[in-house]
């Protein structure tokens, strides 16, 4: 088995899976019907990406998609800490989404050139989906930031809570180095300036300042999570744990 590839696929797949689970929590609770559907549409898009990646991780280890997605322990999940942060209010959800989309779009654009056909195929589909996600989340960041005093204040609060989780997108270790050299993985160092530029552009319109604090939290890629992931997993894994192998 290609250990590095498995690890890489999990990191990407868990980002999608956990964010999809979080966004799914909005189902029936959106601030307006239209936004309720928009958020769950996005949830389904990222869940679709997660399924392709879980299936692929399964093939690399002789397991089924559901086993990979639902039967790992907390320490074996490799998503960035940002995606497991609570939905909070709408501003919190939107800002989390914006940071993620602004990373994912240039990331998937690069991944289209991957020598791994499963990954380049996924990227081709995901670029279209993510282009829309980013448009949606950017528009809302601008509306909230340049909206009322209350909407601006809520976005500021979200920014204080979430900023320290944005450095992890650009974490790279020997897994990345090896796969980048093989032409399979994306070099995240190339993505950083694109992300910075997008955030600056949208923040300027949203009347937000980029925080001076540059201390960044990390650990997700090694399986060290915030206290929130355990709660997500206990809900997400309930069916497979209670009824092993269940399908419908």
């Amino acid at each position: 088995m290609n250990k590095e590839l498995y690890e890489y696929v999990l990191r990407m797949g868990d980002d999608s899976l956990i964010l999809g689970q979080r966004l799914g929590e909005w189902c029936g609770h959106g601030p307006i019907l239209e936004e309720d559907i928009a958020l769950t549409n996005i949830a389904l898009d990222v869940l679709g990406q997660a399924r392709i990646l879980m299936d692929y991780a399964g093939k690399l280890t002789n397991k089924k998609e559901d086993e990979v997605a639902f039967l790992r322990e907390e320490r074996d999940y490799k998503n960035v800490l940002l995606v497991e942060q609570p939905n909070g209010d709408f501003a919190q959800t939107i800002l989390r989404q914006f940071f993620f989309d602004a990373f994912r779009l240039p990331f998937f654009k690069e991944l289209q050139n991957s020598k791994d056909e499963t990954l380049s195929g996924l990227a081709l589909k995901a670029v279209k989906e993510t282009t829309y996600h980013l448009q949606h989340s950017s528009n809302w960041v601008i509306r909230l930031g340049d909206g009322t005093d209350e909407s601006h204040q809520r976005l500021e609060t979200a920014l204080e809570d979430l900023w320290m989780f944005t450095g992890e997108f650009f974490y790279a270790d020997e897994v990345d180095t090896k796969l980048v050299n093989e032409g399979i993985a994306v070099d995240v160092n190339k993505i950083k300036p694109i992300w910075d530029a997008k955030v600056s552009e949208v923040f300027a319109q949203a009347k937000l300042q980029i925080p001076e604090n540059d201390w960044m939290q990390k650990g997700g890629r090694q399986g060290r999570h915030t206290e929130h992931l355990g709660f997500i997993l206990s809900e997400m894994q309930y069916m497979q744990r209670a009824y092993p192998g269940c399908e419908w």
């Binding site: 307006i32 019907l33 239209e34 936004e35 559907i37 549409n41 829309y132 949606h136 528009n139 509306r143």
Partner: peptide
């Protein structure tokens, strides 16, 4: 029909609600 703050949002909402 749907509710939206302006035309841009109305088109996005229509995309999400009516073209899924």
């Amino acid at each position: 029909s749907l509710r939206a703050a302006d035309a841009k949002m109305a088109i996005e909402n229509a995309r999400d609600v009516y073209t899924r």
